[in-house]
Computed example of a mutant assay.
Amino acid sequence: MTTTPLHRPVRRATATFLAGGMLTAVLGLSVPVSASAATLVDWPTGRGSGGWGGSGAGSGGYAGSTATSAVDSDPATDAESTGVALIDTVLTDGEAAGTGIVLTSDGEVLTNYHVVEGSTLIRVTIASTGKAYTASVVGVDQAADVALLQLKDASGLTVAKIDDDTLKAGDDVTAVGNAGGTGTLTAADGSVTSLAASITTQSEGTVAGERLTKMIETDADVVAGDSGGPLLDDEGEVVGIDTAASSGQEIDGYAVPIQTALAVVTQIRSGDETTAVRIGAAAFLGVQVATSAVSDSGYTYGSGGSSAGAAIAGVVDGDAADDAGLAAGDTITRVGSTTVTDAAGLTKALSTMNPGDRVQVTWTTADGDRQSATVTLDASPVN
């Protein structure tokens, strides 16, 4: 059994991605060696291959979970929809959809980082009112898969109720989210099976795999599009953020504990950027990358190629890479003092940098010529 991330675009573009299908390898969350693997569940909607190189803002989306068993869920009630938001994002190479949790009446919304990763535009619709807002990313913790958004010109919003009790194994829970990216909330009932699940997300495109620990594991049928949505207890209070699910005969859901997420929110609100928490925009090179070899997980991406490095599928007009002369077909092999061996390596190299930083980029052209140039990194469009 494999697991997958809960949000993201439904990939319709290239053969290298499965369009809403079950991945052949762990996409996102994995459990200890003896346990079954899990993957983050996303809902892609027309995503192309690769992602646009940025500091943690790359992006291949995650594929949705397609368990062979029937999904057990119902339309969310008014009470279950209170304080829940539907999130739609525009990416440089497609679109995506997910879910969010309203934290403040003036428009702070909590979601997973992978829901907004690589976005150029974020639109948030409040489920209970149908009113839509544009949103910006205030800050993120990629390792914790947490992001805080701010809705533009929002006021008077009804917020979600946060749990103040102690969650226990066996407690009844309900996973609420934008299942399938349809724009309609569903609710899947289940119970807590573990409070200490460890999972490793499978790398995909420029998105490197990551390990999440101390996750809430449930037997609720969470599916693609649910990422960022609330996991509610039997009192209707938020105990976690739906983040990943397994693919197979039986679905297991995984959620970031709400107190873990709120600790990140507190850090973001403080404005104190750390190695874990980023405030504001990320550094942005402006290249669409596709891996040219089989990834560590054994899954093949991109159009192939023999040179080690990050293969360029395209560049953003007017951004840093374009100004430096990089073009589709080139392969980036070094950023600053860091050797780049694949797409994920490029993202990692840029993750330590900030907008405005100057760095030397070295690449091999499609004709085999070695070139380098010093570029000034731009700010990512949204995050």
Rank of each mutant, 00 (worst) to 15 (best):
321 A>M: 14
302 G>S: 05
280 G>Y: 02
114 H>I: 07
340 V>T: 11
135 A>L: 03
58 G>P: 06
246 S>D: 08
217 E>C: 10
264 V>E: 07
281 A>Q: 14
214 K>V: 06
312 I>K: 06
380 S>Q: 10
378 D>Y: 10
363 W>I: 04
126 I>D: 03
276 A>V: 00
319 D>V: 12
223 V>T: 13
275 T>S: 15
240 G>F: 02
238 V>H: 06
154 A>T: 11
292 S>P: 04
155 S>I: 05
130 G>N: 08
62 Y>S: 14
148 L>Q: 07
369 D>R: 13
179 A>M: 10
313 A>P: 01
143 A>Y: 06
211 R>G: 14
296 D>W: 10
14 T>H: 03
184 T>I: 09
220 A>L: 13
369 D>Q: 14
31 V>P: 04
269 R>W: 00
103 L>T: 11
290 A>V: 15
137 V>Q: 03
250 E>T: 15
32 P>H: 02
99 T>L: 04
146 V>F: 08
95 E>H: 11
95 E>T: 15
339 T>A: 15
283 A>P: 05
66 T>D: 06
231 L>F: 07
314 G>P: 09
281 A>C: 06
217 E>W: 12
225 G>C: 00
170 G>Q: 08
257 P>K: 07
283 A>I: 07
271 G>N: 00
109 V>T: 11
353 M>A: 10
78 D>I: 00
22 M>L: 09
106 D>V: 12
201 T>P: 01
41 V>G: 05
312 I>Q: 04
70 A>P: 07
16 T>W: 00
298 G>W: 12
247 S>H: 10
381 P>K: 09
243 T>F: 02
330 D>R: 12
102 V>M: 11
109 V>D: 09
70 A>F: 05
220 A>E: 11
230 P>Q: 08
282 A>C: 03
116 V>R: 01
223 V>W: 00
147 A>I: 02
238 V>Y: 04
314 G>T: 11
116 V>A: 03
352 T>I: 07
315 V>R: 01
370 R>I: 12
227 S>V: 04
206 T>H: 02
93 D>Q: 05
341 T>N: 14
